[in-house]
Design a binder for these strands. Sequence first.
RNA 1: GCGAGAGUGGCGAAACUGGCAGACGCGCCGGACUUAGGAUCCGGUGGGUUGAAAAGCCCUUGGGGGUUCGACUCCCCCCUCUCGCACCA
Length: 841
Amino acid sequence: MSADRYPFREIEAKWQRIWEERKQFRAVEDPGRPKFYCLEMFPYPSGRIHMGHVRVYAIGDLLARFKRMRGFNVLHPMGWDAFGLPAENAAIEHDVHPAIWTYENIDNMRAQLRKMGISYDWERELATCDPAYYKWEQLIFIKMLERGLAYRRRSTVNWCPSCQTVLANEQVEAGRCWRCDSEVTPREIDGWFFKITAYADELLEWCDKLPGWPERVLTMQRNWIGRSEGAEFDLPIAGRPELTIRVFTTRPDTVFGMTYAVLAPEHPLVDRLVTDEAERRAVTEFRAEVARQSEIERLAADRPKRGLQLKAKVVNPFTDAPIPLFIADYVLMGYGTGAIMAVPGEDQRDWEFAKQHGLPIVETVKRPAGWEGEAYSGDGVKINSGFLNGLSIPDAKRKAIDWLVERGLGVAKVNYRLRDWGISRQRYWGAPIPVLYCEKDGMVPEAEKNLPVVLPRDVQLSGKGGSPLAEVASFVNATCPKCGGKARRETDTMDTFVESSWYFLRYCSPKFEGGMFERGAAEYWMPVDQYIGGIEHAVLHLLYARFYTKVLRDLDLVSVDEPFTALLSQGMVIKDGAKMSKSKGNVVDPDDLIRTLGADTARLFSLFAAPPEKDLDWNDHGVEGASRFLNRVWRFVITHGDELRAMTVNMGGATRPPQSPPFAVRPTTEAGVAFRRVIHETIAKATQDIERDFHFNTAISAVMELVNALYAFEATSHDAMAAGERAALLREAVETTLLLLGPIAPHVTEELWSQLGHAESLFTRPWPEADPAALVKKEVTLVVQVDGKVRSRLQVDVGTPEERIQRLALADDKVQPWVRERAIDRVVVVANRLVNIVTRA
RNA sequence: GCGAGAGUGGCGAAACUGGCAGACGCGCCGGACUUAGGAUCCGGUGGGUUGAAAAGCCCUUGGGGGUUCGACUCCCCCCUCUCGCACCA
C-alpha cells in the first residue's frame, strides 16, 4: 500500500454517513415523476458477502444512481431471504437457535453492504422470517386453498436423505439435491402443492412477451414447461373388455404404424394384467432391476432400453390388429399417461427397442429419396395408413383425432412437463403452513384472525428426519377454528421459494399492516423495471415468482401480469479459471478488498473487468489498476483545485457553480475545440453504453480515455490558449468525469465534487448531456484502400464531394505506386469513413 | 443426443447497421524522478520480414468454403469449449 493513495477510508465512511443522514435514497411515491424499480435478487444471510454479491450490487447500484440522475424516481431496496436450511444445520452443529444465527448473519452482512455504499432505501429492509412478513403468505395460502390452487395429496416425491426433506422437481439437478448434491430418492408422502400447472399456458405465452429478458432464460423456462400437443386415447386389451390403456402421443398421424405398446414399469395397470405367478415374479424382478440400474444408466451415454413382454395383448384401434404389450424402462410414469403407443417407423426410441426385440417396423411417412436413417421424423406424405394415406402430417393428425373423438376413444390433449409445485418441507426454519386437522371437520384452514401462525421458538433440532414441529406439543395441539374442538396443526413448513416469490411486492410498502402490500404503492412501483441476478435462478425462483404474481393478480391484489420487465443475468466471479471456493483457496474476501483498496475500487473493477453477463475473471493486478485510475482522477482534481474552483465565478457570468455539462463554453482555439469534442464524445458514448447496451466496461474505458486526454490537455494547453478558455475546459472535463463516474465510484466522486465547491450532492445533478455543437466535426480522416488494403489516409473537410475525394485519393503519393500500372475498375467512397480503389485483376 | 451461447494479442477485453482488427486496462520492456521503488510520471508493446534509419511489405479474429469493392461481423460445412435439458412419447 502506498502513501500516495487517496484517503478512501475517511471519504467512504464520511459519505456513507452523510447520505444516510440526509436520507438521500429514500423512495417516496410521486405520481408526477416516472418511476424506476431497480432490484437485485436479495441474498440468503449466510453470514458474509462474497465477490458475487459485490458484483451484482455494483451493477444494481450503477443503474439505480444512473436512473436517478436521469430524472427517475428510483426504488432500490434490500432485504433478506432469511428462511432456509443452513440456519437449521448451524443450529444442530453449533447449538445456536436458527433465529439468532440468522439475525446475527443479517447484522454482519448489512454492515458489510453498507461499507459498499450502495444507494439502498434501508427503511424498506425486510426479512422473510419475520412473522409480519410471512403472515401474508399464510393468508394467500388460505385463499389459494379456497380456489383449489393449493391442495394436498399423496404423491411420489423427491426426497433428499441428507436434507431430510422433500424437494420440488425444480430443485433436483440430474437426480441430485440442488443444495447438498445428495442423491435424491423417491418417497411416497402426503404434501401440499401449488397448482402452477394451471398457469402453464400463460407462463409459456408470456415468454414471448418479455423482450427485456435474456433469450437463454426464456428458452430454459419454455423447455421446463415443456408443452406438447397431441392426442390421448384408449387402447383396448384383448380379452379384457373391462380394461383399457390410456396413451398420449404427439403423433396421432402415425397410429397405423403402432406395432406394439409400452407401459412404464410402475404403471398401476401392470398388476392387474399379470396372469400368473411366473409372470408376476418376472415383473417384480424387472422392476427391481430397473430401480437398481436407473441411476448408473442415467449417466451412460447410450442407454440400452430394457423391456419385458407381458402376456396380455392390446389392440390397435385403427387396424383392430392385436399387438404385443411391454413394460420398459424408457417409458416414464411421470410424463403423459405413463403408457405409449410405439411407432418404431417414426420414433427413434421405439425404433431401437423394436430392433432389439425383433418387432415389426411399419413406415407411415414417405421418406425422401436416398433416406438411409433409422426412424424418420421429418415431413412427408402419409403411407400405409388406411384412411390417412396421401395426407400431410398436420392434416393426418387432425383427421386421426377426429376419428378418435367420433368413436369416443380419445381426445385432443396438451401435455406439460411442468409438474405442480410441491411446497411442503419437513423442516423447522420456514413459514408454517396455516392449516389444522380437526377430529371432526378434517382439514381446516386457520382463521384469518388467528394469523400469523407463528413458528414456535422452543424446538429440538436433531436433523434426524421428520418435521421438527411435530415434536412441539404446544404447537401441534390446537383448537379447530371451525368447531372449537381439538385439532392438530400441520407441521410441515413452506418451501423458502414461496417467500422469494413476492418479496418485490412487499418492498413497495414493507411496513403496511393492512395486507400483503398497499395497493396504491404496488400500482405505482410495479413491475420491477430491472431485475438483476444469477443465471442459477433461471427456472426456480424466476418461474415461481412469475406464477405467484399471476395468482395475486387473479386474487385481484395487483394489476401486473408479470413481475419483472427486464432481467439481467450476471455471470459468476471466478479466479484462476475456477469458481471461488474455500477448497480451491482462490477466494477473495470483499472485506479485505474494501479495507485495502476501498469500496469504489472494488466496484469499479467489478464493472470494468467484463461485461455484466459474462463470467468475471478476478485479477489482483487488475484491481490495482482500477485503484490507480481513481487515484489519477483524485490527484488531478486536488492538484488543480484552485484553478478549477476559480471557474465558479467565470462560468457564463454566473456566480454559482455551473450545472451539469454542457456548459456554455465556446473554445476559440483548435486545441480547445478538439478537447471539448473529446469531452462530449465521451458523454455520448458512456450514456449509450450504460443506458442502451449495459456495456459498463466500455463506458468506463471511455471515461479513462477522457482522463488520459485531460492530463494531455493540461500539459499542453498553458501557452496554447487564454487562461479562461483553458480553465473552463478543464472544469467541464473534470465535472463530466465526476458525473459519469459517480454511479460507478460514488464516494470518491462525491468528495471531489464537494471539493470543487458544490454544496449539493453530485447525485442530485442531472446526467450530463452531449452538446451537439461540440460534436460537430469540420474535418475527417478517410482511410484510402487499394483492393481492400489500407495504403494511405486523407484529411478532408466534412461534405467534400465524392468526385473530389476520388481525385485526391487517386493522386495520393502513397496510393500512386499501387494504381499506376493497373486499370481502375471502380472507386467506392463511404462518406466520412473510407475510399476503396478497386483495380481489375 | 437435443437446445442455447461462445471461440479475437502473454491476460481481461474492444470493434456502431459489413468499412483502419486489438480501444481501455493488466502484464512486460525502456526511460524520468529518486537513497530506494512494488509509488508516480513519460514512451513502447499482435506475429513475421526489408531497411542504418525514416519508412515499408506480408500474415493474423478456432478450421475450411462462399457472398461482397470490402467479412471478427452475413451464409454453408467442420472442430473445440461453456451452460441448460437429459429416454417428455
